[in-house]
Design a protein around this nucleic acid. Structure first.
Length: 807
RNA sequence: GCCGGGGUGGCGGAAUCGGCAGACGCAGCGGACUUAAAAUCCGCUGAACCGUAAGGUUCGUACGGGUUCAAGUCCCGUCUCCGGCACCA
């Protein structure tokens, strides 16, 4: 009888005792690095939804192992983060303590999956042995000018009195207390990810990633080609407004200018009589939350500053307005408004009665009657009302106008990105301290790498101070230090790094996890990376995956590794739903794996995680489906045991079934259709159960080996039952021979005018002529063929014959 | 609004090179075994119509067109669901 719990316990114990999952660095086999996105060890534990990705990566790892690869399949903990800190504030438990107990629970659950994780390489981003190297990379970036400080507005929760990361702002509100988030001007550490924008964009081509993720990253980077144009300001000869536009061909249609309300020139150029209106508008804009300004209400608002810009080519005076539809963060924070050819400018001009001039025409004719308002036209066309440039098409016009601007020193072609530099600081306790010291004499100085880590000190209270400073700022012993350069008195930076820091490079550490001299040896990284298969949720499509790519490129430029992309292949598993809703603890609709295992065993749960649907699609959890898979495993076990002693000899019937099964299964695995791979086993077993005489050993061996990536405990058991003393994972994935895939005879369909009218059994190698002749002679077809003329016949070997007839 | 991906039996899903739609599983129905049940095993199972029956015909992959000997698959249009972005100049 199949007793999964006993059997699974036996093999799990054996795997631990024999260190089966240890990577053999000197095996001489080709390497394969299969990686899960490591989890944040939350207090709520894992549910069957989390299991999906881990199961997929484990099945894949074991399959690769059977194919003869030395597989590195490690696991660790993304252990710094807000939930632990918030729990500390609420319950007074030190984050290190709660994190450690959460990790223990996660590890217990993950070990149950039966994964081939090599736990000797376990990582924890919150341990000093790990985060000293996170700090090391920060220092290296600082030395290269890639880490810098900037004063800028950040998300601020007035209730929690703390700065928030972008990911902690949910629909404009604080994740913790629901208060609407405002902006607060603060000096922040930034990483210059924009310096890598083009490489991050173009190197996407090298990656075997889902198109969706590539598109999301490309959109996030948002590369945009255009021109920078300077407009001088009437009565302010030493000032100018610089704008960015993707449509320099529309320059003659610019009828007004708009500055972002926060633009530094606003205060300068506003005359006294306009000051109060302008100040009021600026104040109101700053009060508006990000959602109110950007998403919900797109009604155009703004005020005239009273100042005028001078058109660089016509010399016309253009009124300068401020409006919140122009964002300070993008481009130069100022635009030239071309209302005839831009929807937003059009709406704004209509609202405030500003001039609209047609300069691009689809036909090359001026389409606007004198005195009439031009229609909005945002596509490319031919230039009109554009002086010497009339008649050029948009593309030529852009080039010619930019050249003209360059000649006058009024502008040039340029590229702008949507992506901004990365705010890399948080006023929080539970993160990597930023290894910087401020000295009155030397300024901001990085802590020498040999003095790392800058350890996170114990604190009494985790609450932010209320001034926007980290809790670390209240600890004098931590803050007061000596300048590493001059030895004088100095103060430490008290901000910590964001949660994304450790996960940006952890995959480089697994090959060399205990190195105390360097983050990793170049040799080990070059041996194991890039990661061959990276598996995790699509929610990390942009942030984590972009940051990790950025770090990898920086580390490559530091000459510490030879590759510059971390993850060659990426797979995003779909999530599991229950009653159509994403499974999550907070929604209270989780299925606990422990219960399933107690009833059906780990192997059944693993099989069902695959069988539930295409691995990349979301899928609805269904207990009946799980029971089906569980029944199958029991049936398979019974079948196997009952035929162990058959000693039957090989025969064509069995050979044919086996080779077809292996071909079929391998194809489905290779193309990652894992749900159908499970079906392959069911189909094979159904066919084998129709076999009347005994089963040969090759069939049983094949079953034991092929089932083992999916149901590894059963695989080991069946393999042992066959008399083997070593692990089934020392075996080799079976191959198949083409000659067994084709039948000697086969049934094909016969169509008349595309409709199936009969079936015919023919020899596999029958010629087209004979096949067609046999079809025509088929008695059942007589009613469809009599009195008609055959005009054409189509023969698809092994499939069908189509006879095209007419009266 | 823009970009992308989907809509196939009662359900989850197969069929991705244009070639027999519905593999496999679930649910359902009928049967075997059993004193009975559970478990297990066997058979049937897209719809409508014709036929006592064996069997047959027609329809059928969101909807409407098209290409083709042949369309779930390719093309055009429409509806709808999901995801991403969202005043990015």
């Amino acid at each position: 009888m199949y007793n999964p719990q006993a059997l699974e316990k036996k093999w799990r114990t054996r795997w631990v005792e024999e260190s089966t999952h240890r990577v053999q660095e000197d095996s001489g086999k080709p390497k394969y690095y299969a990686l899960d996105m490591f989890p944040y060890p939350s207090g709520s534990g894992l549910h069957v939804g989390h299991w999906r990705g881990y199961t997929i990566s484990d099945v894949w790892s074991r399959y690769k192992k059977l194919q003869g690869y030395e597989v590195l399949h490690p696991m660790g903990w993304d252990a710094f983060g807000l939930p632990a800190e918030n729990a500390a504030i609420k319950l007074g438990i030190h984050p290190a303590v709660s994190t450690a107990s959460n990790i223990a629970n996660f590890k217990r659950q993950l070990e149950q999956i039966g994964s081939v994780y090599d736990w000797s390489r376990e990582l924890n981003t919150s341990s000093p042995e790990f985060y000293q190297w996170t700090q090391f990379f920060f220092v290296k970036m600082f030395e290269r000018g890639l880490a810098y400080r900037k004063k800028m507005p950040i998300n601020w929760c007035p209730s929690c009195k703390t700065g928030l990361a972008n990911e902690e702002v949910v629909e404009g509100r604080c994740e913790r207390c629901g208060t609407e988030v405002t902006k607060k001007e603060m000096t922040q550490w930034m990483l210059k990810i924009t310096a890598y924008a083009d490489r991050l964009l173009y190197d996407l081509d090298k990656l075997d990633w889902p198109d969706k993720v590539k598109r999301m990253q490309a959109a996030w980077i948002g590369r945009s080609e255009g021109a920078r144009i300077r407009f001088s300001i009437q009565n302010y000869e030493d000032e100018s407004i610089e704008v960015f536009t993707t449509r320099p061909d529309t320059l003659y249609g610019a009828t007004y200018m708009v500055l972002a309300p926060e633009h530094p020139l606003v205060q300068h150029i506003t005359p006294a009589n306009r000051r109060s209106d302008v100040d009021t508008y600026v104040r109101e804009t700053l009060k508006k939350s990000a959602i109110a300004r950007q998403v919900v209400d797109k009604t155009k608002t703004g005020v005239f500053t009273g100042a005028y810009a001078i058109h660089p080519l016509t010399g016309h005076l253009l009124p300068i307005w401020i409006a919140d539809y122009v964002l300070m963060e993008y481009g130069t924070g100022a635009i030239m408004a071309v209302p005839a050819h831009d929807l937003r400018d059009y709406e704004f001009a209509q609202t405030f009665g500003l001039q609209i001039v047609e300069v691009i025409s689809p036909t090359g004719e001026i389409l606007t009657a004198p005195g009439a308002t031009p229609n909005l036209f945002t596509e490319a066309g031919k230039l009109v009302n554009s002086g010497a440039f009339d008649g050029l098409d948009s593309q030529q016009g852009q080039k010619a106008i930019v050249e003209e601007l360059v000649r006058h020193g009024m502008g040039e072609a340029t590229v702008t990105y949507r992506m901004r530099d990365w705010v890399f600081a948080r006023q929080r306790y539970w993160g990597e301290p930023i290894p910087i010291v401020y000295c009155d004499v030397c300024g901001a100085v990085s802590v020498p790498v040999e003095q790392l880590p800058v350890s996170l000190p114990a604190v009494e209270r985790y609450e932010p101070t209320g001034t926007g400073e980290s809790p670390l700022a209240a600890i004098a012993e931590f803050v007061n230090t000596r300048c590493p350069k001059c030895g004088g008195p100095a103060k430490r930076e008290t901000d910590t790094m964001p949660q994304w820091a450790g996960s940006s490079w952890y995959f480089l550490r697994y090959p060399d996890p205990h190195n105390s001299q360097q983050p990793f040896s170049k040799e080990s990284a070059n041996k194991w990376l890039p990661v061959d298969m990276y598996i995790g949720g699509v929610e990390h499509a942009v942030l984590h995956l972009l940051y990790a790519r950025f770090f990898t490129k920086v580390i490559h430029d530091l000459d510490l590794i030879d590759f510059d992309e971390p993850f060659q292949r990426l797979f995003n598993q779909g999530m599991l739903t229950l009653q159509g809703v994403k499974m999550s603890k907070s929604k209270g609709n989780v299925v606990n794996p422990d219960d399933i295992i107690a009833k059906h065993g780990v192997d059944a749960l693993r099989m069902y995680e695959l069988f539930v649907g295409p691995p990349e699609d979301d899928a609805e959890w269904n207990t009946n489906g799980l029971e089906g898979v569980s029944r199958f495993l029991a049936r398979m076990y019974r079948f196997f045991i009952s035929h162990l002693g058959d000693n039957a000899s090989s025969r064509p019937e069995l050979e044919r079934l086996r080779h077809r099964f292996v071909a079929n299964l391998t194809e489905r695995l290779t193309s990652f259709r894992l749900n159908t791979a499970v079906s392959s086993f069911m189909e094979y077993l159904n066919a084998l159960q129709d076999v009347t005489a005994g089963i040969d050993e090759a069939t049983l061996t094949t079953l034991a080996i092929t089932i083992s990536p999916f149901a590894p405990h059963m695989g080991e058991e069946l393999w042992a039952q066959l008399g083997h003393e070593t692990s089934v994972f020392t075996a080799t994935w079976p191959t198949y021979e083409e000659r067994w895939l084709a039948d000697e005879e086969m049934e094909i369909a016969i169509q008349v005018n595309g409709r199936i009218r009969a079936r015919l059994t023919v020899a596999a190698d029958i010629s087209e002529d004979s096949a067609v002749a046999a079809a025509q002679a088929h008695a059942e077809l007589a009613p469809w063929l009599n009195g008609k003329t055959l005009v054409k016949s189509v023969y698809v070997p092994g499939r069908l014959i189509n006879l095209v007839v007419k009266d």
